[in-house]
Amino acid sequence: MPFFAHNDSEIYYEVAGSGDAILFTHGASWDHAQWRPQVEELSNDYKTIVWDVRGHGKSTLPDRKVDSEEFSSDLIALLQHLGIKQAHLCGLSMGGHISLQTAIRYPSYVQSLLLIGTPFTNTYNWFEKLAIPLNRLSSRFIPMSLMASIQAKTLSTFNKNNADYIKKSVHSIPHKQWVRIWDAVSRMESKEDLHKVSCPTLILQGDHDTMTARQQKEMANKIPQATLVYIENAHHATNLDNPVQVNKQIMKHLVSLERF
C-alpha cells in the first residue's frame, strides 16, 4: 500500500488516472474513501489523488499534541512526494479548510480550490464562540460508537448508503486519538486571510447543510475569484448525497480553467 513518511506520521494515499492533478481531502473523522464517487468519474480525465489526513483512516498520528499546521504541510509533502508542482485542491469540511489554508500558505502549489461545506473559522458568531468550546469538551466523553451512530443517522437522509461508510470510518479512530485531532481541527482559523487566496475558487454548499451554511456567502465575498453554487438535495455529506451534481460542477469548473 502507498505510504510516505512526514513529520512523524505515515501518510496513506491513492492515485488514479492521468492528466492535471486533483487532490481530494476528506472531512474530519472520515477517510479517503469519501471521494469514491468523484474518483470513479473524474479519473477518466484527470489524475485524482486521495489521502488520509494524519490520524484518520490508514494514516498514523504521533503521540504528541496535534498541530493543525501539519495538515497543510502534509498535503504539500504529498504533492512533492508525487512530483506534482501544482494541483487543484478539493476538500469537504475539515478537508476544505485544509485546502483553503494550503492555498493561503503555499499559493504556488494551488491551481484552483473547490471547497465543499467548508468553514473558514470556528469563531464566526456568538453561537460558534459558545458551541465549539463545549463541543471540544464533550468530545472527551462521547464514545466513538455513539458519535458514529449520530453522524450516520444525521448525514444519510438523502443517501441511505452513507450510513455504513460513516459508521465504519468514524468508529475506526481511537477515542483518545480523536480528542487530540478534534482539538486541533476546532481551532483552525482563516477569517483574516481569505483575501490572500489568489486562485479561482468554487464553493459548493448543500442546500440542507445547516452546519456550515452561515459562513458560505461571506467566504464567497471575501475570496477574490470565488463562485458559490448550491447543491440540491444534499446535507453536509454533500459529495455523497448528490455526487452527480457535485461532479458536474467540479467538471464545469475545471473545464472553464482549461480555456485560459
Rank of each mutant, 00 (worst) to 15 (best):
L155W: 05
I181L: 00
P107F: 10
L134V: 11
S186A: 09
A131P: 01
H171I: 02
Y109G: 11
Q111E: 11
Y124V: 13
P133V: 01
S93M: 09
F158Q: 10
S149D: 14
I104Y: 08
K168E: 10
K168H: 06
S138D: 06
P133M: 02
L130C: 08
K191Y: 13
V185W: 09
R187S: 11
L113Y: 01
I132E: 00
N125M: 12
Y106N: 05
I142P: 09
Q111A: 14
T102K: 13
Y124L: 13
H175N: 04
K168P: 06
S149Q: 04
N135P: 04
S93A: 11
D183H: 06
H97F: 06
V170Y: 00
G95T: 03
I116C: 15
I150P: 02
S93P: 11
G117E: 12
L113W: 03
K168N: 14
I104Q: 07
D164N: 15
Q101K: 04
K129C: 11
L130T: 06
N125Q: 04
D164E: 15
L134I: 13
L194A: 03
Q101L: 08
L137E: 07
Q111K: 15
Q101G: 10
S169F: 07
F127T: 04
L134D: 07
T154D: 08
M147K: 12
H171F: 11
R105T: 11
S93L: 07
I166G: 00
M144C: 07
Y165G: 08
G95D: 02
T154W: 00
L155C: 04
Y109C: 14
N161G: 14
H175T: 05
L115I: 06
K168C: 09
D183C: 07
Q101V: 10
H97I: 15
A103L: 04
F127D: 08
I104W: 07
P133N: 01
L113H: 00
F120E: 02
L155D: 07
S99F: 07
T121K: 02
W126H: 12
L155V: 00
S190G: 01
N162H: 01
Q151E: 08
I181P: 01
I173S: 09
R140L: 09
S145M: 06
F141N: 09
S190A: 00
L137D: 03
I116M: 15
S112N: 03
T102P: 10
I132R: 11
L134K: 05
K153I: 05
T118K: 01
Q101N: 13
N159Y: 06
I181F: 01
T157I: 03
H171R: 12
Q111Y: 11
A163M: 12
S138I: 08
I173E: 10
K168T: 10
I181A: 00
